[in-house]
Amino acid sequence: MYAQFFGNYLLRKQAVTAGQVIQAMEEQHIRHLKLGTLAIHAGYMNVSQVNDILIRQAHENKRFGELAVAAGYLTNEQLETLLNQQIPIYLLIGQRLVENGAMTDAELKEYIISYQEENELSQLENASIQQENLHTLIRNLFLITYSDIPNYLIKYLSLLFNNLIRFIGEDFIPLNPTLCQEYITEHCAGQIINGEYSLISYLDMGEDTAIMFASRYTGEEYLNYNEYVQDSIKDFLNIHNGLFNVNISNEDSIELLLNPPTDLENTLISTTSTMIHLPITYPFGTLNILIKL
């Protein structure tokens, strides 16, 4: 289950404010133990095995546990034990919201049940169901804005959310998407994907957000906006789009072409057709995803 979407669900239901959800996500982030950490603590895996899986995870759209079992580092029984120890992230967020007085225990329970029902979520954890769950969550996210969202765009966004979790962090909330025809960028990168279908994607953010984004992306601490910070936005977009092309090639046997990413600082992006604007909020600022179809 994706905590990020539970946060968006609460926002759509006007149960809480964006500020309350962001605060709760930031507070719980520290307390949520990752599967790798739990595996080391239990003595099931050593540090180099965990690192090996993290490297593989950067290249494959699969969960940590699934890869660790495939590599022979964990048995299915050990994975199940670890998953039972790992409190789901949405429960931790919910707990923080209750502790912070944003809602009562009873309200939280009701929202969790209705969230699961409306998104057809179950506790089954196999990868293809997880993937289908995420697709359902994305369809619901776009239900009002763009109800006939094409499948390839769902795949694109599904991978984007996974890549954000992998490379930037899981403490984000997708805000409600809108359709627009004009957008003025701040610090932005854009890239064209061409082929059987084509799309142009942009990643835009303010200066302070870009500095924090780059620091998280590269693992280095940047204090000022510089060429490395600027390039981090481009590099993330390029790697994400490259992985999307690989997935589409592997899953659908469609070969798409990728143009080099470009910088688009303080630029007016406009279209006569459809452009989706999806803001994604992190505690350090908002990333604006724009997709021209």
């Binding site: 390029n238 790697i239 789009n241 490259g242 992985l243 092309n245 690989v246 090639s249 592997n250 070969e255 990728l258």
Partner: peptide, 8 residues
């Protein structure tokens, strides 16, 4: 060394 590693 590339971000696009399709078979083709």
């Amino acid at each position: 060394v590339s971000s696009v590693g399709t078979q083709s």
